[in-house]
Structures are given as C-alpha cells and as structure tokens.
Design a protein around this nucleic acid. Structure first.
Length: 559
DNA sequence: CTGACTTGCGCC
DNA sequence: AAAGGGCGCAAGTCAG
C-alpha cells in the first residue's frame, strides 16, 4: 500500500486487514510481517468493488460470517482469507501453542466472539461485540503464536484450511442447494396423502391409528406419546422398556407392523414434511447455515433445516437446474485411511490402496471376513470392544501395530486426563466431570468409584475417536478448499453461481452444482482435489483416498 | 404458562 | 460384567 489505496499492481505481500471504522466506513490496512500499514478508509458501499479488484489478496478479518455474506450478495467472491475468530479458537486449544502468546486485554472478548447467522449479518451492527475488538493486535498475536509453535507448518495449514472452510460455508448458504418443492410435495402426498390443515394428521397416517389401537387393545391410545405407547405395549404383554423402532422390530405382534409404519411416516412428517418446506426452502433453494469448526473435533455443525441429516427419502427433491447437473462425491472409508496415514502404518496403508479397504484387509490375511474387518476397525476407532468388534482387536493390533497403537494411546491419554490432538494440531477439550477433577485422589463426595471409572473410560473413547474423526475432518477441509479453487477456475468469467460451485458438504461428501457440459471436468477436479488433500496431510506417505463419484440430475440418483 | 430435559431418529 | 464416536431437530414430558 505504498501509494495510498491498494491496487492489484502493488503485488505481493498482499495481505490486507479489513476493519470496521466509523459507521458506514471500512478501513483496509496492508499487513506485512506482524505490522499493519496505515489505514485506507473507504465507504461501505465501495467495499465490494475494492475487494473485487484484488483477486489475489488474502483478506484478514475478525469473522467471515460478519463480512462475506454481504460481499457474496454484491456478487464478489474472494480467493482466500484469514478468519481470526476461527484461527484463535484453534490456537487457543492447540497443544502446539504457548498460550501466553495469545494473552491480551481483549482476549476474553475474542474468545467469546460467536458467528452471526445469515439474517443478522448487517455489516455495521453497532452493538456487535466485534466492534470493540482490535483485529490488528489479534492478528499479530496469532502470528507470534504460530511462529513460536513447534509444528508451525501443520498449524498454518490447519488455519488456512479452516478459513477456506468458512468461505465455502458462506458460499454454500449463498448459493443454496437446488430444491424442488413440487417434487418434495408430490413425494409426501404419495406417502401419506395430501397436505392436511395445520394440526391434523395426513390421511394415510390417520388411518393407521385405529389399526394400532385395535391390535394393542388400547382404544384411546395416542401413538405420538411415548409414555402412553410404552404402557400400551406392556399392557398387551410385550416385554419392552422403550418404544424405539429397533426394539419393536424384534417383536412378533400384530400391532407392530402398523406401529412401525406409523413411526416412519410420522418421523418424516415432523422432520421433513410440509412445515420443513415452508421454513427452509425459498426460491427453489435449501439454505442451511453451516458452522465450520462447530464441533470440537473440527467437523462442521449446522443449523436450520437439519442439514446434517437430510434423509435419503427426500433427496429426490434435490434436482439440478435445467442444463445443470450435480456431481456427487464421497470418500470411501475416510477414517481408517486417515488413521493409516497419520500413524504411518504401512500395512494398513497397503490395504488403503485398494478401493475397498476392508476387503483388502481380508485379502492380506489379517482378518477372516469383510464384516470382521469393518466391525473391528469401527470398534478400534470408536472404542467399542463388545462382542465381535472386541474379539478382532488383538488380531488387528498384531497386524497393524502403528494404527491400532495410535488409537489405543489416544484412549489411554484421555483416561489419564490428558489432551490429545489431531495430525494438524487441533487439541481436544480438557476433560470435565467428577472423574477428571478427582483423578489424583479418591472420591470423597459420594460419587461411586464405578461411576468415576465409567466416566473415565467414556472420555477415553472420546479422545480415541477425536484423533481420527478430527484428522478426517482436516482431510475433508483440505479437499474442500482445493476443490473450491479448482471449480472457480473451471468456470469462465461469471459470478459464483454461474460457475460450477459447491452446494452441499457433509463430513466426507460433497455436492457440486455445475453446468452439464462441465460435469466431466468437475469430476476430474474432485479427484485431483482428493489427491492433493492426501499430499497436504501425509506428504509422500502412500495412502489413497478413492472417491465414489456420480454425475446425476437428482441427488437421489447418486451411488 | 415457560423452559429444561428426555426420547427417538435421521445423517456421517 | 459391561463397555460404541460426533451431530440437529421435533415432540413429549415434567418441574417450577
């Protein structure tokens, strides 16, 4: 920013901090090293134009949810950013970081900063906590923390990936998942009859009630009440202590089939019925809010419309626009592959070079059958040791000592009350609860020792899973970030939604909405991004991440 | 009545 | 002897 207002010609270093100044005004300050240059002030309405000019800039801002939606609404996409809120959250819990480097007067306020939802993203809400924070100071603290960290390379990758994730999240909410309300409505109508007036049951659902009542001999039964239902089942002589579908399926009784049918339809109606359509689908798009880093392991959370569980039943309503298609991709067996990579277990990595990792474990003679392989690995990663899953563990440990050793050690560390971390350095939360506070002295306040021991083992299962789930989330973030940039480059000259763009992401699956003629190139990009994510996390270590990719008109047709 | 908690079930 | 990770959401339940 040598000549006043920054321009593209200024070239690198090209990291610019955006700060809210007086109402309606923004300050841009070029950053180099730890220092911020002199502020350049511009009116809010000029910000999109200003940002659009500097395509290669890394924008540093307090929180992506407070800046990016408005830019997207103005038709501006940014290439990269540093999200100080997300970065701080990572650094604050990473065991790689010396926490004293992050101390400061407004540390507590930074720690408390929460994302804003789409409806409240007004850029200059004066009562916003963010208004009182100093992003330049926070940025230099974070740079210092990073510079002092023993694993600064990994951490820097994690911060960049997390920030890219924040961009993707905002873009997906902006674009929305194409959703055909008419198809959804037809689907509901076929299953349970036409939409009833508010507060009434649809015809097909209603018709099941007398059937259930008759079979159970409970003429007044309201099947929506778990309490009433449980009593009715018990009065009918059925040995049950809950009303879960899985429990009911074990029973042989004439009341069970209509009841299961009722529960199934009633669930669909409540979770993804007409009310869901009214609330969450506008102008042919489903727009949930994604919360990057919303889960302690690094997975995303979501809010609005239950984006984490869009049932397969209603996916036929996700239909690409005319002339467009979906490229749907998911990673087969992400977590065991990640475990092979992060533990450097060459034997498991060899299995991970096959499209079906579990089958490869059988073929190498490690376990007798595919289901043994799967159950055993799930048990190793989740901490299940019951039955089949537990019996496989010694066998797996012999064959894959590094991989199984890594999760076992994570479990032991958790049980000792220690913090564990992912490959890139995301730290697990410190343990809470009676067992953790009392781990060094015997219980003296009446909490039975068995209960403390149970809690301790439960925490060990959490830390065991944390390292794998969390590193899996890091792989997925890198995949997403790289794919996002590849898609942009494929698209020609238009805005985000004129080019191939991400419209859905869930843990290990993405949906890209693309002009049909680019579907082949998008498919290639999805594969290239997966390979790149593997290299970023595991360098040259030979572990593959094969994808299942479909090019479809409707999400329901994938796989 | 409201709000907190529980139950059940969908997704990975 | 028993022992499975992470979520969000709606509806029912129950205490205050």
């Amino acid at each position: 920013m040598t000549t006043g207002r920054p321009t593209p010609e200024d070239g690198v270093p090209d990291r610019v901090l955006l700060v809210r100044a007086a109402p309606g005004r923004v300050e841009a300050r070029e950053l180099s090293g730890g220092a911020a240059g002199p502020p350049v002030r511009l009116p809010e309405e000029e910000l999109p134009g200003f940002v659009r000019q500097r395509e290669r800039t890394r924008w540093v801002w307090d929180d992506t949810t407070r800046w990016y939606p408005a830019l997207l609404a103005a038709g501006v996409r940014v290439e990269r950013c540093s999200d100080l809120r997300l970065s701080r959250a990572l650094l604050r819990h990473s065991p790689f970081v010396d926490q004293t480097t992050l101390a400061g007067d407004d540390a507590a306020a930074w720690d408390a900063l929460a994302p804003v939802a789409a409806e409240e993203h007004a850029l200059f809400a004066l009562d916003d906590l963010a208004e009182r924070l100093d992003p330049a100071a926070e940025h230099s603290r974070q740079q210092a923390a990073l510079a002092a960290a023993p694993e600064r390379g990994r951490l820097a990758l994690l911060l960049a990936a997390e920030s890219s994730g924040a961009l993707v999240a905002a873009e997906m909410t902006h674009a929305g998942l194409p959703w055909r309300a008419d198809v959804h409505d037809r689907l509901l109508t076929e299953l349970m009859g036409p939409r009833p007036p508010r507060g009434q049951r649809p015809a097909q659902l209603d018709a099941l009630v007398p059937e259930i009542r008759a079979a159970l001999g409970a003429p007044q039964l309201n099947p929506d009440s778990p309490v009433e239902l449980l009593r009715a089942l018990q009065n009918a002589g059925l040995p049950v202590s809950d009303t879960r579908s899985w429990t009911l399926e074990q029973l042989d009784h004439p009341g069970v089939p209509p009841l299961l049918e009722y529960k199934k339809l009633s669930r669909l109606l409540a979770a993804n019925g007409w009310a869901w359509l009214d609330s969450w689908v506008r102008d042919g798009r489903f727009r949930p809010t994604y919360l990057p880093g919303g889960v302690v392991t690094g997975r995303w959370a979501s809010s609005g419309g239950g984006a984490l569980s869009v049932p397969t039943q209603i996916r036929p309503a996700a239909v690409a626009d005319a002339g467009w298609q979906f490229v749907v991709a998911d990673v087969a067996q992400l977590e065991p592959r990640v475990l092979a990579g992060m533990s450097g277990d060459t034997a498991m990595a060899e299995a991970a070079r096959a499209a079906d990792l579990y089958q490869a474990m059988v073929d190498s003679g490690a376990v007798p059958s595919r289901s043994d392989a799967k159950l055993g690995m799930l048990g190793a990663m989740y901490g299940g040791t019951r039955g089949e899953s537990g019996r496989m563990l010694p066998r797996l440990a012999r064959r894959y000592p590094q991989a199984i050793g890594l999760v076992e050690e994570a479990a032991r560390a958790g049980e000792r009350g220690e913090v564990v971390h992912t490959l890139l350095g995301r730290g697990s939360p410190p343990p809470t609860g009676a067992w953790a506070e009392r781990s060094l002295e015997p219980a003296d306040d009446g909490v039975p020792p068995e209960e403390l021991a149970r809690d301790r083992r439960a925490w060990g299962r959490f830390t065991r899973n944390f390292v794998v789930q969390g590193t899996g989330a890091e792989w997925a973030l890198c995949w997403l970030a790289d794919l996002r940039n590849r898609l942009w480059r494929l698209g020609g000259a238009g805005e985000l939604t004129d080019r191939p763009h991400l419209v859905f992401f869930l843990h290990d699956e993405v949906v890209v909405h693309t002009p049909a003629h680019l579907a082949g190139e998008v498919t290639a990009a999805v594969h290239q991004a997966a390979a790149q994510a593997g290299r970023l996390l595991f360098g040259g270590f030979p572990v593959d991440f094969p994808l299942d990719v479909s090019v479809v008109d409707s999400w329901a047709d994938a796989h």
